[in-house]
Design a protein around this nucleic acid. Structure first.
Lengths: 223, 223, 223, 223
DNA sequence: AATGAATGAGTCTTCATTCAT
DNA sequence: TATGAATGAAGACTCATTCAT
């Protein structure tokens, strides 16, 4: 049915192989969509199977159980994009502020704004029921993404561009609005009419992060 | 039923009446704890009843269904939040920065750090399954809390203390780390060993918010 | 509340006594109405209590269980009217046909057309679940009513007014349309728009019973 | 699924298909037996499943709910009745009396004496809880059966064999003993020791119907 | 005698999981 | 490999029954 399959029409065996290999990914994609939408417990395997266009039994050819499928969904959410980001930091020439802006912008484009952006909500929702999955996601994805921010902060401090600061905690704080944006996209923003404008939101976050609230001619008045 | 009747210690009905009046709150408190911990679908009414020290059937004396109980949990969680918001008076003499610090600190003490702090996670997790509840919570609580921030921002701008800025969006961004703190407390922080230190986190958020990252502001973040 | 109670207002103790004595009958009356309407299993004690204007607990002051209440409802359905009918037969002067007509007419007025007319449906519906109750009702009420018919038949045969016939079986057959009328009144006639006209129905039954279908100038053609 | 496929004995799907096609009828048969015996509310789905030799969950593969199963039982019971009615041809040469005797006899053999004979009791018992089902059964089955009687009456009247009479009402009356026979078979006759003899009962009904009680007709009821 | 809050056993219904085909 | 009919354990919900007041 996919264009890939059609293109390979001359070799039906290859096409089947291709399809077979793609199956698990098709299944986890369907599962991700529904887990994010309804939550783990409220998602039925029938619905996942239907969305993936297979029968319920087929799911068990690839995953031992619903929990195994859930774990696979989260595991699959660990994308190599983070590797690319790491090397981007290493080879970036411009200011750290600009680097940060590009990182956030890229993350939003490649992750936050895709179906993978639903993972944080899913993991948060099910963290207490699947602590090891949450811990894994936390370490493998969230912590690593936060580490990217941390490295940028350190780069900026080293260059004198940023103030000296406790980078771990600051990275945590700075990551929060970005996470919240992704979370909202898959939860409350679906309910009210007012879906937030991501570009403006991130732009505001970025600007605020750099310069703070305090007016520059008055910056030492507070506290 | 009247307060007069309750005041009459001799009334033999009094203790039963008192119990009957207290029951719904006891039940929603138990439900809140478990809904936040396990999610709506994964929470069994038996467990709620057991936690509240009553039998399963008793729940149905006060709530028509599991869904009705869920809604009551959210609705009931709103009142104390609004009360707390009201107590954050807008007659304040100090700087807007200090006002903001006190607001956040009070919120954390009265809401975020209590069991009510689990509501945001709960609402986010179940938003797609209970859109009207999520919308209501969003409007009644989140939006109102964000409005407090907004008013402080406007106050600071008017006084020349803060830079001019799009207050709505900024309030959104500034509220995100606070929400994330509460959310994390009831999800991923329960999994990994490293529970975040709320005081430091909020202090960092506050300092960062005021002065930004850029070194020209010349302030020092506490290490 | 009743006119009886009001009339006895001068003696409150007497009124209470009167009420207390009337209670069981009020409760069984309410139970009869609902048992007939919904069936035994589908009738809730709450509803019976509400219809009788008492609390659910009060039912247990008078009846040990729902089953006991059911049995009381059926027992109470054994009315002394049958005694009056018996003596009516003994002292009747007119033709047996006229006696039969009066008996059926009286039964319909005093029993069939009252709430007691719902008992046959109730007993039939629950006969398999409460065999001893059904057997009792069968023997105490149905069989006795059928016996009245049988005595009239015997009276008519003795007088040469009726043909010789197996009176038991004939009484059974003749009683069927009367029972069906009562049963229908409390079941299917409530559903369709066409409630049968009892007077015409009984009149037709009576006329047919006496003279049969066969035209008189042709009565030996059949068979 | 097609008859062709079933005809192919080699088809490995055939036996499963055959089973799947037969299942609903097996389930409604079991349900009919228990609904008639215990009534709708007092019948447990577990028992129906056990009687049909399947698990409880299987019922839900074929029927959405207990109510849906009930409705299917009644609907399904209608088809054979109508088929039987159709088989009672209206090209009949003998007397109308003989035609009537054959109709009643056939009804008893094909319907009244089979498990379908329990339907009238069931419908009567649950009419108030399922008015639309009762109305449907009333119109589709009872009314149609009564209509057959009515046509015979009209045929007899036209031929001068029967007296002139209001056929609708007479058909109603004549049908009552037949219905009562079926009803009794599934209720009170199971309780007392004296199960009525159907053949004699119907024979008595028939003879009485034709000639009536009054001796001037001069016929003799069989002893 | 009367109340009605509380109980918990019982039943319908769902759905993850299995397995014959 | 794929199917989908069948299973049965689990959970929401009901309601007869009890009992403190």
């Amino acid at each position: 049915m996919s264009s890939v399959e059609i293109a390979l029409g001359a070799n039906p065996e290859a096409s089947r192989q291709r399809r077979k290999q793609a199956r698990p990914a098709e299944l986890t994609a369907a599962a991700l969509a529904l887990f994010v939408e309804k939550g783990f417990a409220a998602t039925r395997l029938d619905d996942i199977a239907a969305l993936a266009g297979v029968s319920k039994g087929t799911l068990y050819l690839y995953f031992d159980s619903k929990v195994a499928l859930f774990k696979a969904v989260v595991l699959e959410g660990i994308v190599p994009v983070l590797d690319a980001a790491d090397s981007m930091i290493d080879h970036f020439d411009g200011s750290s502020a600009e680097l940060m802006r590009q990182l956030v912008s890229t993350w939003w484009r490649l992750i936050g704004n895709t179906s993978l952006g639903g993972l944080p909500k899913l993991v948060i929702s099910e963290a207490r029921n699947f602590p090891e999955v949450a811990a894994f996601y936390q370490n493998a994805v969230i912590a690593r993404a936060r580490n990217l921010l941390k490295r940028v902060l350190q780069r900026g401090i080293a260059a004198g561009e940023f103030r000296s600061m406790p980078v771990d905690m600051v990275a945590d704080v700075l990551f929060a609005p970005i996470l919240m944006l992704a979370i909202r996209r898959h939860s409350v923003d679906m309910c009210g009419a007012t879906t937030i404008d991501a570009e403006t939101y991130l732009q505001t976050h970025f600007e605020l992060t750099l310069h703070g609230l305090v007016s520059s001619n008055n910056s030492r008045l507070a506290q």
